[in-house]
Design a protein around this nucleic acid. Structure first.
Length: 943
RNA sequence: GCGGGGGUUGCCGAGCAUGGUCUAAGGCGCCGGACUUAAGAUCCGGUGACGCAGGUCUUCGAGGGUUCGAAUCCCUUCCCCCGCACCA
C-alpha cells in the first residue's frame, strides 16, 4: 500500500500555507539549488537522486533554523529541442516513437513540431511531477531560458557584456566534428555512430615530387628520418590540387577535408596513381630520394591517401614491403627498385631489437598486409612502447638521445615552422550525425570563446574553489584538476535556441555558457514572473543588473530608465543581497568538468569575492537494481511513474538510502516496495505509544536515552556532510533496532518520557526524507503544524552515559554467551532448559582492573598487583585477568554487575523461558571462580 | 597515456584518517523456527571452519615489510570504474 492520500493532503497544506515561499527575513539563510533540467522530456529517476540531495539538505537546513530557499528553473538553450522539433515536423518515425514512449498524449504530438511547444509543455509537466514528490521548492521563481523569456535574455546579455568588458570573451578558431548537412558541430548525444570520437591532430609531411608536393599523413612525425619509400593506393584516383599556393597530390576525399580546414584549394586535374607509382620523391628532412610504391592498405579516406613507409618501426610498412620485395612483378614494379630497400632503425627501446616492426611481425606470425587485426595490434604495441620509452638515435640529428614522448611536440613545431610539415585534423573513427550524414572535421573561425585558458582567470577560479565546501571533500581534487585543464571554451553557436551574443548577433550563446551564474537570477525571477509588478523587460538593460547585482549606478537613474518604483528596485536589490551567494548546489559528478567549473569561473569573473559560490555537492549516477538505467533495458522510469508505483515518501527515502559519496547510488525496488509498511508501522507505533508508559526509571531507560542522543549526534554529523544514507542508517535503521531492543528489555513497558522523546526525535529525523507521513504523525501527536518547520533534534552531551552503555552491552554479551553454550551443548537437538545460574565476578577482580588500567605495560601491572597480598592469594586468576586486559587493550568501566543482572533477570527469564538465578549461594560447579569482570561465570541446567 | 576513485566475508556495502572489544556494522539473499488452513507479510535465531561449557583456527585483490599486534601504516604488483570537452 502507498500513502497517496496523506501525500496529497500535505502537499496541498504546504501550498496553501505557502511555507516554501521564501522571502528575506531577519534570520540566517541557506540557499540551495540544482542545475535546471533540459526540457526535452519528463524528469526521470536519473534526475531525481541529485535533486533529492538538494531537497533533503534544504529541508534539513530549514529545520536547523535557516531561512531556506530552494528555487527551480528549466533549461531550453541549445540545439537538441530545435532538431527534435524539426524531426517531428518531418514526420520522422524514431522521434515520434520517442515522444510516444514517453507517454505524451497522442493528440499533442503534432504540436511538438514547434520548439516553443516543448519549452512550454515539459516545464509545466515537470512542475506537476515534482510537486508530487513533495519538494520544498519556491515555485514562484521558476522560469525558462532563451530569448523566449525576455527577462532571462536580458540577464544573459548583461552577463556577456560583463565578460567582454573584462576581456574574458575572445575570438578564435578551433577544429570540431561537423555535420555538413546540419551545418553545426555534432556533439556526442547527436550521433548515431562514433561516440567519443574527437578531431585528432595529424601531421602532413611535405615530400617533394617533381615541382609538386606529396603530403604524407602521419601520427608519428619522428619516424620521417627512417622513411624508405612512399605508399599510394594503386586502385584509386588522386587529384592534383593547388593548396595555399602549392601543388599537392592527394586523394579526392582529402581535398574535401582541406576545404573544411581553412585551406584555399583549387583542383587542377585528376591523376591515376599509376602515373606516380614507380617514380621517386624526396624526403624533405633527409633529402633522400625514395621510391613510390603501391600498397592496398592505404585508404584514400584517411589522411591524404599518401603514406610514408617506415618498415623498421611500422609493421604495416614492413609487411607490405616484404610482400612487394618477394614478388615485384605482381605489384608491377621492377625488382631493381625494391631489391635494395632496407629498414632504417631510428628509435631505441630496451626490450626491442633494432627493427621492432620486423621482430613483432615475425613473433605474431603476420604474413600478409591483409591481416588487419594482427597488424593493428602490433602497431599499437610498438607505438605505445616507442612513444613512452623510445629514445631517438643518431639518425635523427639534433633530436638524438631524447625520449620520443618529450620531443614529439618540439619536432612538430620545428617542422611546421620550417615549412616542411602542415597540421591537419582527422577523425580517428567514423562519426555519423543523427541526420545520417557522415561527420567531418571543420575548423570554425570567427568563433567566440570564453577564455578559461587564461591564467589570471584560472587564478580567480582557484581562489573561488579554495573557499568553497565540496561534498564530498574527495571530489575537490577533481575540481582542481579541471580548473587547471580547462582551455578556452567555444561559447557561441550558429543554430539553436538561446540568447544572441549582444555585439555579434549572428551568434547564439551556447547552452553551457548561459547557465553559469543564473542562480543569481532566481532572486529576481520572483519579481519578473509575477505580472502584477508590471515590469517591462525591454527597459531592463545592463544598467539595471549592474545596479541590483553589483551596486553600480544610482537609484534615481535606474528607476527612471526602467520605469519601476524605487521601492521595487530596492526590494530586488535587498532580496539579492540577502540570498546571495548560494550555499549549496548539487549535481551529478559528470558536471564537474563543465558546468560546475564554469559556474566557478563566471562567478569569479563577474561577482565580488563575497558573492562567490559557497558549496557544491556531487554524486554518482543512479543504477536501477544494480543496473545502468537505460531506455533499451526497460528500466527507465520517470518521476511520475515512480511516485505512482511507490508513493513519494517511499521514493524519496529509497533514493537517499541508495548511496552517497561519488559511488553510483542504487535504486532498490525491493526496498521501495517494503519501506512504506515500515513507515506506516512507525506511524501506528507513534500514535499508540506517545505519552504513555510507566513513570518509574530503570537502568534501561537511562541506556536508551544515551543511545538516542548518540544517534542524534551521529545523524546530525552525517547530515551536515550530506551523507544522507549514513544519516538514515544511524538515525533510522539503527535507532529502530535499538528501540526494539529497548522494548524487549523493558518487557514492553517503556518509560513514558523516554518513549515520547524517542517518538518525537525519530519522527523529526525522518522528516527531511519522508515529510508527508511525518507531517501526519506530527499532527496526530498534537503538535503544531508543520513538522517541516519544526526544529531538528538537538544533541546533548550530558545525555551520553558510558556506564549504562557498558552495562547494557554486558547484558547482550551474557545473552550471547548463554546462547552459544546452549547451542554447543545441544548439538542441533532441541533440549529444554531447567535453569540458568549466573555468577558475577568477585569485587577484588574489579579492584584489580582499577589498579592495572593506568599501568603502562603488563609487567608493571603484574608487579603492582602482586605487591598486594589479597591479589597474591589468587595469583593465577590475577595473571589471567591482567593478560586478558592487556591483550585486548581493554579495561572495562566498573559497574555493579549483580544489580544490572538483577534488573535484567525478568528479561532473561523471558528470553530463555526458564528460571534464572543471579549469584546463588550454592556453586557446585565452582563457576564463580571462572567469572571475570564483564564476563560472569554461568551454569546451564537442562531437564 | 594523463587525472580521479576503487578492490572487504554469497551479493550490495560500512570499517581504513586516529592499528588492538574486527569473524569484521547494516541490508539483501539463503537456512531454521514462530505466526497462518496455506502463501505472502511480519517476528525470532543462524549464515568462514572446527568444537559435548562460553573456545580454537583461518579470512579483508596478490606479495613483501613495520609492529607485541595490520582490513587499517609503508613498499611492490595485478585488476576494475569514471573523466579527457565544444555538448545536454
Amino acid at each position: 500500500m502507498i500513502l497517496l492520500e496523506i501525500e496529497e493532503k500535505w502537499q496541498k497544506k504546504w501550498e496553501d500555507a505557502r511555507i516554501f515561499y521564501s522571502d528575506p527575513k531577519d534570520m540566517k539563510k541557506f540557499f540551495v539549488n540544482f542545475p535546471y533540467p533540459y526540457v526535452n522530456g519528463f524528469m526521470h529517476l536519473g534526475h531525481s537522486f541529485s535533486l533529492m540531495r538538494a531537497e533533503v539538505f534544504a529541508r534539513y537546513k530549514r529545520m536547523c533554523g535557516y531561512n531556506t530557499l530552494f528555487p527551480f528553473g528549466f533549461h531550453a538553450t541549445g540545439t537538441p529541442i530545435v532538431a527534435a522539433a524539426e524531426r517531428v515536423r518531418d514526420g520522422e518515425k524514431s522521434q515520434i516513437d520517442i515522444l510516444e514512449k514517453m507517454e505524451v498524449p497522442k493528440e499533442l504530438i503534432p504540436k511538438f513540431s514547434d520548439p516553443e511547444f516543448w519549452v512550454r509543455y515539459f516545464p509545466e509537466e515537470s512542475i506537476k511531477d515534482l510537486k508530487l514528490l513533495g519538494l520544498c521548492v519556491d515555485w514562484r521563481r521558476s522560469f525558462i531560458t532563451t530569448s523566449l523569456n525576455p527577462f532571462y535574455d536580458k540577464f544573459i546579455r548583461w552577463q556577456f557584456n560583463k565578460l567582454k568588458e573584462k576581456n574574458f570573451v575572445v575570438k578564435g578558431e578551433h577544429p570540431v566534428t561537423w555535420c555538413p548537412k546540419c551545418n553545426n558541430p555534432i556533439g556526442d548525444h547527436a550521433r548515431l555512430e562514433g561516440e567519443g570520437i574527437t578531431p585528432e591532430e595529424i601531421i602532413l609531411l611535405k615530400f617533394k615530387f617533381e615541382n609538386k608536393i606529396l603530403p604524407a599523413a602521419t601520427y608519428r612525425v619522428e619516424t620521417v628520418f627512417g622513411v624508405t619509400n612512399m605508399w599510394m593506393n594503386p586502385g584509386t584516383k588522386y587529384l592534383e590540387v593547388e593548396v595555399d599556393g602549392e601543388i599537392w597530390i592527394i586523394s579526392p576525399v582529402a581535398a574535401e577535408k582541406l576545404i573544411n580546414q581553412k585551406h584555399k584549394i583549387n583542383i587542377i586535374k585528376e591523376l591515376d596513381s599509376k602515373e606516380l607509382i614507380g617514380k621517386s620523391c624526396e624526403n624533405p628532412l633527409t633529402g633522400d630520394r625514395v621510391p613510390i610504391l603501391p600498397a592496398t592498405f592505404v585508404s584514400p579516406e584517411i589522411g591524404t591517401g599518401v603514406v610514408m613507409s617506415v618498415p623498421s618501426h611500422a609493421p604495416y610498412d614492413y609487411i607490405a614491403l616484404k610482400d612487394i620485395q618477394s614478388n615485384p612483378s605482381k605489384y608491377g614494379v621492377p625488382d631493381s627498385l625494391v631489391r635494395n630497400i632496407t629498414p632504417i632503425p631510428l628509435i631505441v627501446v630496451e626490450d626491442f631489437g633494432k627493427n621492432p616492426a620486423i621482430e613483432i611481425s615475425e613473433k605474431m606470425g603476420i604474413s600478409s598486409q591483409e591481416d588487419v587485426d594482427k597488424l593493428e595490434e602490433a602497431t599499437n604495441i610498438i607505438y605505445k612502447k616507442e612513444f613512452h620509452q623510445g629514445i631517438l638515435n643518431e639518425r635523427t640529428g639534433k633530436y638524438k638521445g631524447i625520449k620520443v614522448s618529450d620531443v614529439k611536440k618540439i619536432i612538430v613545431t620545428d617542422f611546421v615552422n620550417s615549412g616542411v610539415a602542415s597540421l591537419f585534423f582527422e577523425l580517428p573513427g567514423k562519426v555519423v550525425c543523427r541526420c545520417l550524414t557522415q561527420g567531418v572535421v571543420k575548423i570554425v573561425s570567427d568563433q567566440w570563446f570564453l577564455a578559461y585558458g587564461s591564467p589570471e582567470w584560472k587564478g580567480l577560479a582557484k581562489k573561488c574553489l579554495a573557499q568553497m565546501n565540496i561534498y564530498p571533500e574527495k571530489a575537490r581534487k577533481q575540481f582542481e584538476y579541471v580548473l587547471d585543464w580547462l582551455k578556452d571554451w567555444a561559447c557561441t553557436r550558429e543554430f539553436g535556441l538561446g540568447t544572441k551574443l549582444p555585439w555579434d548577433e549572428k551568434w547564439v550563446i551556447e547552452s553551457l555558457s548561459d547557465s553559469t551564474i543564473y542562480m543569481a537570477y532566481y532572486v529576481l525571477a520572483k519579481f519578473f514572473e509575477d505580472p502584477s509588478y508590471k515590469i517591462d523587460p525591454q527597459k531592463l538593460d545592463d544598467y539595471f543588473f549592474d545596479y541590483v547585482y553589483l551596486k553600480l549606478g544610482n537609484l534615481e537613474e535606474v528607476s527612471a530608465k526602467s520605469g519601476l518604483s524605487k521601492e521595487l528596485i530596492l526590494d530586488m536589490k535587498k532580496e539579492f543581497e540577502y540570498w546571495y551567494p548560494f550555499e549549496f548546489r548539487n549535481s551529478g559528478k559528470d558536471l564537474i568538468q563543465n558546468h560546475l567549473s564554469f559556474c566557478i569561473f563566471n562567478h569569479a569573473a563577474i561577482f565580488p569575492e563575497e558573492l562567490w559560490p559557497k558549496g557544491f555537492g556531487v554524486n554518482g549516477w543512479v543504477l536501477v537494481d544494480g543496473e545502468k538505467m537505460s531506455k533499451s533495458k526497460g528500466n527507465f522510469y520517470t518521476i511520475k511513474q515512480i511516485v505512482k508505483m511507490y508513493g513519494a515518501d517511499a521514493a524519496r527515502i529509497t533514493l537517499m538510502n541508495g548511496g552517497e559519496g561519488l559511488d553510483d547510488p542504487n535504486w532498490d525496488s525491493e526496498f521501495a516496495r517494503t519501506i512504506t509498511d515500515k513507515l506506516k508501522n512507525w506511524q501506528d507505533f507513534c500514535i499508540e505509544n506517545y505519552g504513555k508508559g510507566r513513570t518509574e526509571k530503570l537502568y534501561i531507560d537511562r541506556w536508551f536515552l544515551s543511545v538516542l542522543d548518540k544517534a542524534i549526534k551521529e545523524t546530525t554529523e552525517a547530515m551536515n556532510d550530506t551523507n544522507f544514507r549514513t544519516a538514515l542508517s544511524k538515525g533510522f535503521f539503527d535507532l529502530q533496532r535499538d528501540l526494539k531492543w529497548y522494548l524487549k528489555r523493558c518487557l514492553n513497558s517503556p518509560n513514558k518520557e523516554v518513549i515520547s522523546e524517542v517518538i518525537k526525535t525519530q519522527t523529526l529525523i525522518l522528516a527531511p526524507f519522508t515529510p508527508h507521513i511525518c507531517e501526519e504523525i506530527w499532527e496526530k501527536l498534537g503538535f503544531e503544524p508543520f513538522i517541516s518547520n519544526a526544529s531538528w533534534p538537538e544533541y546533548r552531551e550530558e545525555m551520553i552515559d558510558k556506564i549504562s552503555e557498558e552495562s547494557e552491552y554486558y547484558i547482550e554479551e551474557v545473552v550471547n554467551d548463554i546462547r552459544e553454550i546452549i547451542s554447543v551443548l545441544s548439538r542441533g537437538e532441541q533440549k529444554s532448559l531447567e535453569k540458568i545460574e549466573i555468577y558475577t565476578a568477585e569485587n577484588w577482580k574489579w579492584d584489580l582492573i582499577e589498579i592495572i588500567k593506568t599501568k603502562e605495560n603488563m609487567g608493571e601491572a603484574i608487579k603492582t598487583a602482586m605487591s598486594n597480598e589479597e591479589f597474591r592469594k589468587n595469583g593465577k586468576d590475577v595473571n589471567l585477568i591482567i593478560q586478558r586486559c592487556f591483550k585486548n587493550r581493554y579495561f572495562p568501566e566498573r559497574f555493579d554487575e549483580k544489580e544490572v543482572l538483577n534488573e535484567a533477570k525478568k528479561f532473561l527469564m523471558e528470553e530463555f523461558k526458564t528460571e534464572v538465578n543471579i549469584d546463588p549461594k550454592e556453586d557446585p560447579g565452582n563457576d564463580r571462580k571462572k567469572a571475570i569482570p564483564r564476563k560472569p561465570g554461568m551454569h546451564i541446567y537442562f531437564k
